[in-house]
Amino acid sequence: MNIVVCVKRTPDTETRIRLGEDGASIDPSGVKFIISPYDEFAIEAALQVKEAAGEGEVVLLSMGNDETQETLRQGLAMGADRAVLLKGESGVDGLAVAKALSAELEGMESSLILFGMKGADMDQQQVGPMAATLLGLPCVTGVSGFEMGDGKVTCRREVEGGTEVLEMDLPGVITLTKGKFEPRYASLKGIMAAKRKPLDQKEAQGGESRLVIRKLAYPPERPAGRIVGEGAEVAGELVRLLREEAKAL
């Protein structure tokens, strides 16, 4: 059972974002980069499938810059077997990224391809189902847990008012949300071993980006709020303000 996990290098969610001088990008200096949180769930899920099966290979695939090697090593330290880096610019146009990834995925012969549901940078939430569509594979998005079956996989996704259980034929694509896959920490041994694991690099064969970020700005400041008061006594005053001032009730 070979599983490919597509991972993206993104700023740490704690990071303060500072805008770059061109007004259309962020200033990367001082920013800590990590594996996008949802992609860590995907790596964990892949490792658990491999461990349960007692065989197979977990391959990480990423499109990004040179520094992305470091991100892939982090994933290898968690326990993935090898990694492929497609060198290129991974920007806001998810379709351009999906084209590069699927061009590589075509030749990888994996039965299961995992994505994060959303990258913690552009928040586009699109590359997984786009790549699946380009590859002509079935895809279930926003999965919180799954079990492998014979030639198929049973996925659970949380939707309004309940949990949906779906069966998907393999090969297929799953995008993961937070669920039962709690990402493991890399052990010291894992970190040492990761240094020797294969990490192939090649130029990305993708499409051109056709979305342009013309401007990046800080979010509009919220007008300073106020403390209405202390304790249950001020509940009436708050409700009055919500109705008369905020017009929210």
Partner: peptide, 13 residues
């Protein structure tokens, strides 16, 4: 973008 820490203005080509 960046979970609401910035807003981007996007054009389509």
């Amino acid at each position: 973008v960046f979970a609401g820490k910035a807003f981007s203005t996007i054009t389509f080509q």
